[in-house]
Design a protein around this nucleic acid. Structure first.
Length: 630
RNA sequence: GGUCCCGUGGUGAAGUGGAGUUCACGCCGGCCUGUCAAGCCGGAGGUCGCGGGUUCGAACCCCGUCGGGACCGCCA
């Protein structure tokens, strides 16, 4: 740019208005190549043919093709880049969420990065030697352009491109309104919208009725920590924000809604993670007169619809029992994309003289095929530490040498026959790394399951997508050391497995429940259960849990009493939409598919929430803030 | 509540006791008529998160603190 541009800038600034005067002829233009990392997220399906022209534009920046050649069009958007070629020629790329188009302009047009512009010009074929195959609009450009500056812009803090993937996330969140201009965020948010839409359509096609439940609800201190909201009219009393619509949706079954759903915002005041935010969205559903197969079918259809909205066909959703999941994968949310299954070795070492193995309840191993060279002493020690932290007494590792012998500190304690049986059981080949744990069944499974994930789990954006139902969860997860009562694995309204009812009092730890999880590539998408609808069974469960009638009445009275008025058999499910979208988008972190997420410490770098409030607000609520702890 | 990692011009990085030094991008100015992450030349821009300590001397070592991230606990 030269003199002209400088002068125009000066004039525009002096007058303090958008420089309408900047109408310049240009020639034409293309779209910036949409960055799309290989094996990354799916593209949002083609948008419908809705009319997106407005009084200010005729087309969007990603839609012009050679078939439009000769038409006069008007585009609106942001200046993505400017390439100058002397006083008479410059190229500007105009961007909106659909893509970019190259406009050929007179270099006296003073537009800079992220200026908001309207460009009117004639669609023209690019010279054949100047086609840009990286751009969807790379066959054309706008020529004879008039450029209106609709707004000026300061230089953005980071580039509005895939290069900002390298920028500190905190900076991206602080300027989220710029970050979301990027193709990645546009794609993620639009994918999310498409999935939400598919979920609604699927649920409604299946006769589910959307009912909205309150955000201000009574506090029920079981389970996750709640956000509480002080009541102004009842000083000293508080609402809670819902962890889930659980109680309301069950009452809707009593109320004869029959099939309820809601895309519900849920809030939990627990520490944040890559897959957890304070507030998150769930597809929440409940059905009357069903068994768990009915629920699996309905929710499965909904998830399939969501996957198809992301351009995928998930195929059949398989089912395995919790026990099988633990036994084979050492996890209740197994990632089925890779093998390395847990192999039973208890019999192999039944008569061993190796003290660490002798008498162990369960001995299992995994074969990290070909990984022997990847795991040196440091990493192996680290894995051993991890195993011990998880409660195992130790971890045995063996490397298979080129000649087939086992290299390990403990090899000398294992007999030849044992070594041969071990190699056979694990199909060991030279270069393999074998890991063995001998302990209680649960510990053995969990430790090896964790190591299996650590060693073998592919990145989230690597397919295929493997959905599964994990069914027959145990009713109880352990026994309270103080009270001696069993600890429920799910909420206390979960229905026991009908075949195990007789064991409730005598052998509670072997009672299965009618609870189930939906798992995708190692992510727990959600869980549900058939509920208890009869008063007698509920009372029996409370007795087993050590909850007195009085206590039950006090804690859950508003929920239990309605069940006396004709509660139908019912069950339901809820799955986290954020997690589903993240996996389908190929994102490791749900913040990438949320427009305005919180950081790990629960803050929003853009709004600076949470903030102190003025004293008057506290006074009205009868709240006094204590000084910080020393 | 805990473990570990990270804070250096607008952005990303390099700098492990000796001058705010370096690189790329961006920004500002100049040149440039077919670029498309244009190119070439020049320039500006920093309280090395903050506070304290050690040292003749600290971006660098120590302590604290704030902010960010991963994980454990937690998430019926």
């Amino acid at each position: 740019m030269g003199r002209h541009r400088r002068q125009q800038r000066a004039r525009g600034r002096r007058s303090g208005r958008a420089p309408d005067a900047h109408r310049r002829r240009t020639r034409f233009h293309p779209v910036r190549p949409d960055h799309h990392p290989p094996n990354r997220s799916p593209r949002v399906p083609a948008e419908s043919n809705v009319m997106t022209s407005t009084s200010m534009r005729t087309h969007q920046c990603g839609e012009l093709r050679p078939e439009h050649i000769g038409q006069q069009v008007t585009l609106t958007g942001w200046v993505a880049t400017r390439r100058e070629h002397g006083e008479k020629l410059a190229f500007i790329d105009v961007r909106d969420h659909t893509g970019v188009t190259q406009a050929v302009v007179d270099n006296t047009v003073d537009v800079r990065s992220e200026y908001v512009v309207r460009v009117t010009g004639t669609v023209a074929a690019r010279p054949t030697e100047n086609l840009n195959e990286k751009l969807a609009t790379g066959g054309i450009e706008l020529q004879d352009c008039t450029v209106d500056i609709l707004n000026v812009a300061e230089a953005p803090p980071f580039p509005v491109s895939e290069r900002a993937d390298q920028v500190a996330e905190n900076t991206r969140l602080q300027y989220r309104f710029i970050d979301i201009r990027r193709e990645r965020m546009q794609r993620n948010l639009r994918l999310r919208a498409a999935i939400n839409s598919a979920i609604r359509t699927s649920m409604e096609d299946q006769g589910f009725v959307e009912v909205e439940t309150p955000m201000l609800v009574p506090s029920t201190p079981e389970g996750a920590r709640e956000f509480i909201v002080p009541s102004r009219q009842q000083p000293g009393s508080f609402y809670a924000l819902p962890q889930s619509p659980q109680l309301f949706k069950q009452l809707l079954m009593v109320a004869g809604i029959d099939r309820y759903y809601q895309i519900a915002r849920c809030l939990r005041d627990e520490d944040l993670r890559a897959d957890r935010q304070y507030e998150f969205m769930q597809l929440d559903a409940e059905m009357s007169f069903v068994d768990q197969l009915d629920v699996h079918e309905a929710i499965g259809a909904c998830v399939v619809a969501a996957a198809k909205a992301a351009g995928q066909d998930p195929g059949e959703i398989i089912k395995i029992t919790w026990h099988e999941a633990m036994n084979r994968f050492g996890s209740d949310k197994p990632d089925l994309r890779f093998g390395m299954e847990l192999t039973e070795l208890t019999d192999v070492f039944a008569a061993t003289e190796f003290k660490a193995f002798a008498g162990a309840a369960t001995i299992k191993g995994i074969n990290a095929a070909g990984k022997a060279d990847d795991y040196g002493r440091n990493k192996l020690d680290g894995m051993t530490d991890k195993a011990k932290k998880m409660g195992a007494k130790g971890l045995v590792w063996l490397k298979v040498a080129a000649d087939g012998t086992l290299e390990s500190p403990v090899a000398k304690f294992l007999g030849e026959a044992e070594q041969a049986a071990l190699k056979s059981a694990l199909s060991a080949q030279p270069g393999d790394l074998l890991l063995i744990v001998a302990d209680e069944w649960a510990t053995t499974c969990e430790v090896l399951g964790t190591l299996r994930n650590d060693i073998g789990r592919p990145p989230v954006y690597e397919g295929p997508y493997r959905y599964l139902w994990v069914i027959d969860f145990p009713m109880f997860v352990g026994v309270d050391a103080v009270s001696g009562h069993p600890i429920p694995a799910h909420h206390p309204f979960t229905r026991p497995h009908p075949d195990d009812l007789h064991l409730l009092e005598t052998d509670p730890m072997n009672v299965r429940s009618q609870a189930y999880d939906l798992v995708l590539n190692g992510w727990e998408l959600g869980s549900g259960s058939i509920r208890i609808h009869e008063h007698e069974l509920q009372a029996r469960i409370f007795t087993i849990l050590g909850i007195s009638d009085e206590e039950a009445q006090k804690k859950f009275g508003f929920f239990l009493n309605p069940f006396r008025y004709g509660a139908p058999p019912h069950g339901g499910f809820a799955f986290g939409i954020d997690r589903l979208v993240a996996v389908l988008a190929g994102e490791e972190n749900i913040r990438e598919i949320i427009a305005f997420p919180k950081t790990q410490s629960g803050m929003d770098p853009m709004t600076n929430a949470p903030t102190p409030v003025v004293q008057k607000q506290l006074d009205e609520l009868g709240i006094r803030v204590l000084p910080p702890k020393a």
